[in-house]
Design a protein around this nucleic acid. Structure first.
Length: 792
DNA sequence: GCAAGGTC
């Protein structure tokens, strides 16, 4: 039996074995196998339950189509074959499944009951069916369990009425994967190459496009446009101050709210001024309730974490996962806002009795009785997010504690009473004009004692009065005001928009938001507001100009509609896939043909590559200086040859003593990572165009196999890396007097011969370990050797 | 170097 993740395999097997299973770790260290004896289809059998870790396979183009320089992105729509590769090769999932599945007679698939889960069913089957026992062809050997919550009853019900996996639903996911891959990669590669070749200060190494990330950016730019196009408007309000006896004066709200014409406003003032009295027309008192929250799901947690704790979604999920694996909270990825019927609310609450921050509220609840939680929606995935055991601030760390505190307070709130308050409204008339004022007074705080930030703010009480009373008008005047623009979109608002339009899922929303930040399309401002960058704005405006559908949130839902037809068996997989690909292929070609439309916008904001950067090293072809462009992605550009050469990122580049590469005459540059980090020289041409067969793109001189060049691996390599398997320790010739050698594959740096005058790699090697010998010169005063002699 | 979706 196979579940979607290790935690589920554990809880399901515990239920089905009634706690009697034995467990061991699988060969990949990530998944466990739980075994027990029980009965299946009327026979006594040995059960084995394990899990995968999400998808086993993921789709990618076959190798040669991943070369950006040699493949026209248009080919990605049709000619480029895609293949399934193991999603996480380190987990060795196929091998693991085969080891455990070998010799089994039956398989029960306990994957999550959504389309992705259905798809994983077939990934599992593809792996294990070849190694399972072959029963008679009449026998069913593959079963699918359908469950909607992880409770005893639900799991047992599922076990007692097993069905079959749904091929159509799985196929709809295959189609989604292929569409996302082909469309996303084609647009991303085209845009990236086109704009990177033209501009020197885009400040993003990748101009990506995707059916989720692009609409996400679109929401942010839409708000930006509203702010930009906002024209403040002047309006006028009538402000009336009245009082009765010795009470404090009362400010009244005008029932017409505001007028946009000064003359009209003045007329109303004049009308109101005909009376010196404000007459109470009515007093109404209504008891109102502020509802306690529903049980917590992922998206709501992300919203509150962003808006109230100032924690971004990606960070919040990392913290939540840690709290989950350490047993402090329940599974943090769920859409469900409804507690299962048999959920132990009281037990969960009792765990919190001793927490100094909310013990009082917990004890009060336990003695007066828990309130029934509000009805939420059950998505059939996991129970809502709740605390699982008591914790203290010290053991969780700052952000861990803050998130745990929120989750716990939210949980307590869901079983507390609503907050009740009295809303009083007094209607006045001053002459012919109507005014009113209203105020709230607390009746009982209910859940807001544990969520004080949602409490009813204390207001000054309204005066006691009744219909027919009169107040004296203290002042009445016309006040000029201006409408103000909206603010930038907050992250919490963005999450809400994404959820509403079905852009991304609870698990992927944080990733999409993170993406548009990392690509430098938006920046996060104070209060976690998302402000689009010039690049983000130009991209979205460009899409609007060329093909607005590319950026509208409906781009996802429209495709999903098609995919649902596959899932429901109403349409053929191949036909839908082909049809949708054709549409996007046409969109792509139109986009490519119209790219100058976007380019016109780019030109306004960015400077051409030829005008960017500062001269650094000479080109080997024209012997003119190439310019070093520091903005992401940092690179060298020769404006005479109109060629761009890539460079290693995340480090500093300088000229390397005007030395040249013997192969192409380009001047070498020296790459350095940080102050004490490693450094190595590289030839700009070779780095982009590997000079030898056994080399790849992106290699510096420390990996170059040139037989005689003094900068090559052959000349400066000393011995095998002490940590990684494939790396060689290479002398860093610039590192003296704190001499060191650095691995050319990993980050290992080894210091040696400090204060030596000169260190050189010799031709000879050590007989014992095959490492190269080094010749070391010391100054007389610095030598570590006992009797300093002139020759060493 | 790309997408989005699962997941430790």
């Amino acid at each position: 039996m196979v579940a979607e993740k290790p935690s589920l395999a554990q809880s399901i097997s515990k239920i089905l074995s009634k706690g009697s299973c034995t467990s061991r770790k699988g060969l990949n260290g990530a998944c466990s196998v739980h075994e027990y004896t029980g009965s299946f289809q009327g026979q006594s059998v040995r059960f084995k339950m394990t899990s995968v870790c999400g998808h086993v396979m993921s789709l990618d183009f076959i190798g040669k189509y991943n070369n950006w320089d040699q493949v026209d992105p248009a080919e990605l729509f049709s000619t480029a074959p895609a293949e399934k590769k193991e999603a996480n090769p380190k987990l060795n999932m196929v091998k693991f499944l085969q080891v455990e599945g070998r010799g089994c007679d039956y398989v029960v698939l306990w994957l999550d009951c959504d389309k992705e889960g259905e798809n994983i069913c077939f990934e599992v089957l593809d792996a294990i069916q070849p190694v399972m026992n072959k029963g008679s062809s009449m026998d069913q050997s593959v079963y699918r369990a359908k469950f909607s919550s992880i409770t005893d009853t639900d799991i047992w019900n599922a076990m007692n009425c097993l069905g079959e996996p749904n091929r159509n639903e799985a196929l709809s996911v295959d189609a989604r994967q292929e569409l996302d891959l082909r469309i996303g990669c084609a647009f991303t590669r085209f845009q990236t190459k086109y704009f990177q070749g033209k501009y020197g200060n885009l400040d993003s190494s990748l101009i990506s496009f995707g059916p989720c990330q692009t609409p996400t950016l679109g929401f942010c730019v839409e708000r930006h446009d509203k702010i930009q196009s906002f024209r403040p408007e002047t309006y006028w309000i009538l402000q009336a101050k009245v009082f009765k006896g010795k009470d404090n004066p009362l400010m009244l709200d005008w029932n017409r709210v505001r007028v946009f014409d000064r003359e009209v406003g003045q007329m109303f003032v004049n009308l109101a001024k005909t009376s010196r009295e404000a007459k109470v027309e009515s007093v109404s008192k209504k008891e109102k309730a502020k509802q306690r929250p529903q049980a917590l799901n992922t998206v709501e947690m992300l919203r509150v974490a962003s808006s109230s704790l100032g924690m971004g979604p990606q960070h919040t999920m990392q913290i939540a996962e840690r709290l989950y694996t350490q047993g402090y909270i329940s599974y943090p990825r769920t859409e469900t806002t409804h507690y299962p019927e048999n959920f132990d609310l009281k037990g969960t609450l009792k765990q919190q009795t001793n927490n100094p921050f909310w013990a009082e509220e917990v004890k009060a609840l336990l003695s007066t009785g828990l309130n029934r939680p509000r009805k939420g929606s059950d998505a059939g995935d996991h129970p809502p997010i709740t605390p699982m055991r008591a914790a203290s601030e010290g053991e969780l760390g700052s952000d861990g504690w803050r998130l745990y505190e929120y989750i716990t307070r939210h949980f307590i709130a869901t079983i507390s009473q609503d907050c009740k308050y009295l809303q009083t409204t007094i209607d006045f008339s001053i002459g012919p004009e109507a005014f009113s004022c209203s105020g709230k007074t607390l009746i009982s705080p209910g859940y807001t004692t544990v969520m004080p930030w949602l409490g009813i703010p204390l207001e000054e009480n309204l005066p006691e009065c009744e219909r027919g009373d009169t107040f004296t008008v203290d002042e009445i005047k016309l006040v000029e005001k201006q409408t103000s623009p909206p603010e930038y979109l907050t992250e919490a608002e963005l999450i809400t928009l994404m959820e509403k339009h079905g852009v991304g899922t609870d698990a992927s929303i944080p990733v999409h938001i993170n993406n548009i930040c990392q690509r430098n399309y938006v920046t996060i401002e104070n209060g976690r507001k998302l402000k689009p960058t010039n690049l983000g704005i130009v991209l979205v405006h460009g899409y609007y100009k060329i093909d607005a559908e590319l950026v509208l949130p409906t781009i996802r839902s429209a495709v999903e509609k098609q995919l649902n037809l596959i899932a429901q068996g109403k349409a053929n997989f191949q036909q839908v896939l082909q049809h949708t690909l054709d549409i996007f292929k046409r969109k792509f070609h139109y986009f490519v043909d119209s790219i100058t439309g976007m380019d016109e916008l780019m030109e306004v904001s960015f400077s051409p590559i030829a005008a960017s950067g500062k001269p650094l090293a000479r080109c080997g072809k024209c012997h003119r200086f190439m310019k070093y462009i520091q903005a992401k992605p940092s690179r060298l550009h020769c404006s005479h040859c109109d060629e761009t050469y890539s460079l290693p990122q995340n480090g500093a580049i300088k000229l390397y003593k005007e030395l040249r590469c013997p192969l192409d005459d380009f001047e070498l540059v020296l790459w350095t990572s940080g102050a004490r980090g490693k450094s190595y020289p590289l030839c700009p041409y070779c780095y982009s165009n590997a000079p030898f067969r056994d080399m790849k793109k992106g290699m510096g001189c420390n990996e170059c196999t040139h037989p005689s060049c003094q900068h090559s691996l052959n000349s400066l390599g000393i011995g095998q890396c002490v940590e990684c398997d494939t790396g060689v320790l290479v002398l860093d010739p610039t590192s003296g007097p704190k001499w060191r050698m650095a691995c050319n594959k990993c980050n290992v740096v080894v210091h040696f011969f400090e204060h030596a005058h000169r260190v050189q790699v010799a031709q000879e090697s050590c007989d014992a370990c095959e490492a190269s010998l080094v010749a070391v010169d010391f100054n007389k005063t610095r030598t570590p050797l006992a009797a300093a002699s002139p020759v060493q």
